[in-house]
Design a protein around this nucleic acid. Structure first.
Lengths: 229, 229
DNA sequence: ACCTGAACACCGTTCAAGT
DNA sequence: ACCTGAACACCGTTCAAGT
């Protein structure tokens, strides 16, 4: 399971692959340069010859994880292509859930989406009929939609003491007063641990599949309205 | 400008307010417990009597920043209420841009959205006609939409060396080949620094106002379709 | 109840030195 | 070109001790 990295020689690729593996295991917060060096059987400072900083290591690992993400087919139906792009993206991130927070929340990760993907997405939207300012807006909407939901869905528990935090949050929700929050407490049974804010598990353990599919439809249908507005 | 915190006595509220101020100044990455203690004129360990951990400090500061966020008016038109909720949320986060990454990317921040807000949002959607599983999905869509775009828009530059990173990323984009990426390079003039991935400034300096408004319409219109599907 | 003070086990990154 | 090795300036958190 845990592959052996302590063979020679050190390359940028081997370093990033090992970094991704460590992030998968311990999360971004728990990822340290010194740990990585230990795994690779070198001095921490040896890594600085190949990669400029810890941040660059994380960004590189994320790019490594999203490298496989297939761009849309420019000639096919734009709605179908967007739907499957959204699903492919989600699947790719779910293989490395801890990177979600980095992609959503750090501009560095912009490097992790390939220019080719951007190009094909633009071509797809242009073929669909989006022009000028509408093309720019539609593009931004698609990227935000693709990344946004998954970032939230897979956002990790506090790294300190996840188990205790989950129990505390669950208790806090059960104690919501029916006087102050009548609608929430009425729906709590069906919402508990299945809705943003009203949950104490990450999407890794409890995926929000149905809501994700609804999300995809909302965005696609909304874009159709925007196009013909 | 930089208020004096070194007066007595230490309370949870004073600590969180000071923490928020430090995060505004140095970002989450640059925020340290020891710095905060210096600001407050106490030993670092004194803080641990009031707050359990650094993570709790950050979560508390975020909650402090979003405390003012006004819930929707349950009786009014649901589309208008969603539109203005989205705008209020964005305005609130823009006052403390560095917290965006925490809200989007850490489950802890769930504590920062008040149960009352959740309750009113649910009531609004129920009044609009969403029922059962559709209500759950619509709710998740709204939260993801509210948080998602802004998290991406305000995601910070790499804390190491922002200026140099921005220049490097700009250069990388200008060098995109017209052979591999014909559509992208054709639209680059209009897209440069105004679109996700294709930008090197954060939304703090270069807000994506028009795309945000498009986003709001896409989500609202898409939800209308979901409701009557 | 609330804070001091020392101590523990870490960090990321630099720079000179080796090969 | 690539890595060692020592060193710098930090961290978050614990725990016993003070008041």
């Amino acid at each position: 399971m845990k592959s052996d990295h302590s063979s020679s020689p050190l390359t940028r690729d081997r370093i990033l692959a090992a970094a991704l593996e460590l992030i998968d295991r311990h999360g971004v917060h728990g990822f340290s340069v010194r740990d990585l060096a230990r795994t690779l059987g070198v001095y921490p400072t040896a890594l600085y010859w190949h990669v400029p900083s810890r941040n660059a290591l994380i960004a590189g690992a994320v790019a490594h994880a999203l490298g496989e993400l297939r761009p849309p087919d420019v000639e096919a139906d734009w709605r179908d292509e967007l739907r499957s792009l959204f699903r492919r993206y989600r699947d790719a991130v779910r293989r490395h859930p801890h990177i979600a927070q980095v992609i959503g929340a750090q501009l560095v990760s912009n490097e992790s989406l390939s220019p080719v993907l951007v190009d094909r997405l633009l071509a797809l939207l242009e073929n669909a009929g989006f022009r000028g300012a509408r093309l720019l807006n539609a593009y931004n909407v698609v990227i935000a939609a693709m990344v946004g939901f998954v970032t939230l869905e897979l956002s990790p528990l506090p790294e300190d003491d996840p188990v205790q935090w989950a129990k505390a949050h669950e208790a806090r929700l059960r104690d919501v007063s029916a006087d102050d929050c009548p609608t929430l407490s009425r729906h709590l049974p069906k919402f508990a641990d299945r809705a943003f804010v009203v949950r104490w598990s990450s999407g890794t353990e409890r995926p929000l599949d149905a809501s994700f599919e609804a999300w995809v439809e909302v965005v696609v249908e909304g874009l159709a309205v925007l196009k013909d507005a």
